[in-house]
């Protein structure tokens, strides 16, 4: 060791620090994804296995083209994918509308109260996910809390919300709301109050102030929150399975079915590849919009 130069010794140290993570992520994250990609292009075998022939039809099947197991043109999978996108977008929209005003309210409190409410918002993130979803099963099912509560108020609505898109939407908003709130809050807190006052002094209406001053300045938080909520919502399968039942399938549920029930692994892998590709596209768009925003800010 003493024969090594300083640079050589530093190299060795860096190599030692980085090899564990390289082995871990390379071996158990990158390699599995590559094998999954290979599976998505392999032919499904007779009894749940795979035949190693090039077989792009799994991707065609997603779009509805006929293949060995689907005799006719059928857009059932396309419908499920479109529904996933619709539900994920609605989740983003609803949690945005819910969080935005509350972020302003929290930012105007005095320091002690503010910290307390921020603590309250982060806390559910640590509480078990399955338990938080289970709570909504209790609330939304026909004999559940919501109908009983309405009954007490004298309203016999007999809502049957569970196993509907609304139930899935509520569940997704509920579990991902801290991820939307915190980025928005961060940009609201940074907002320079003097800019708002200046806008009002110059005669702008409240709506104009919001649209021309407040909204553009809090946009980074809105964008970050939206992407962090959109991605896990799109691929979720626990929420549709507990609150959507068999009626509201999403891409994630479809992948699960192909792996654990239908045993068509190549088709499941193809669906997972599409899910991964859409996530990467959205991330890329986000990163590009970030660098564009930075370029704009750098402009005099």
């Amino acid at each position: 060791m003493s024969g090594l130069t300083l640079q050589g010794r530093n190299r060795l140290r860096l190599f030692g620090l980085l090899s564990p993570v390289t082995l871990l992520i390379g071996g158990f994250f990158v390699a599995p994804l590559l094998i999954m990609a290979a599976y998505s292009l392999a032919e499904p075998g007779m009894y749940g296995g795979v035949e190693w022939n090039f077989y792009p039809d799994s991707f065609g099947r997603v779009l509805g083209w006929a293949d060995g197991s689907n005799e006719e043109f059928d857009i059932v999978y396309l419908e499920i994918i479109l529904r996933s996108f619709r539900i994920a977008l609605l989740t983003v929209l609803v949690s945005l509308l819910v969080c935005y005003p509350v972020a302003f309210w929290v930012s105007r409190l005095d320091a002690r109260k503010r910290n307390f409410f921020l603590f309250l918002i982060t806390l559910p993130f640590f509480a078990s996910l399955i338990v938080r979803l289970y709570a909504w099963v209790l609330i939304l099912r026909p004999s559940g809390f919501l109908n009983q509560f309405l009954h007490h108020l004298g309203i016999n609505a007999e809502l049957d919300l569970i196993y509907s898109e609304t139930a899935v939407l509520i569940g997704l908003v509920y579990i991902f709301i801290p991820f939307m709130f915190l980025p928005i809050y961060a940009s609201v807190e940074k907002l320079d109050r003097r800019l708002i006052e200046a806008s009002q002094d110059l005669g702008a209406s409240r709506w104009q102030t919001f649209r021309k001053v407040i909204l553009p300045l809090t946009m980074p938080g809105v964008a970050a929150g939206s992407i962090i909520v959109f991605i896990p919502s799109l691929g979720n399968f626990i929420v549709p399975s507990l609150l959507g039942g068999a009626k509201v399938l999403m891409i994630g549920s479809l992948v699960e079915q192909q792996f654990l029930a239908a045993r068509n692994w190549p088709f499941g892998a193809a669906l997972a590849m599409l899910l991964m590709a859409s996530v990467l596209v959205f991330l890329l768009l986000y990163v590009r919009s970030l660098s564009r925003a930075e370029a704009l800010e750098g402009r005099p």
Partner: peptide, 23 residues
């Protein structure tokens, strides 16, 4: 390396789960 460490956090759970299962 930064990107490599960022990817597992952004990957949908179901993709991580089934790719590990196949692996």
């Amino acid at each position: 390396y930064r990107m490599l460490l960022f990817m597992p956090m952004m990957m949908p759970d179901v993709v991580l789960g089934i790719s590990l299962l196949i692996f």
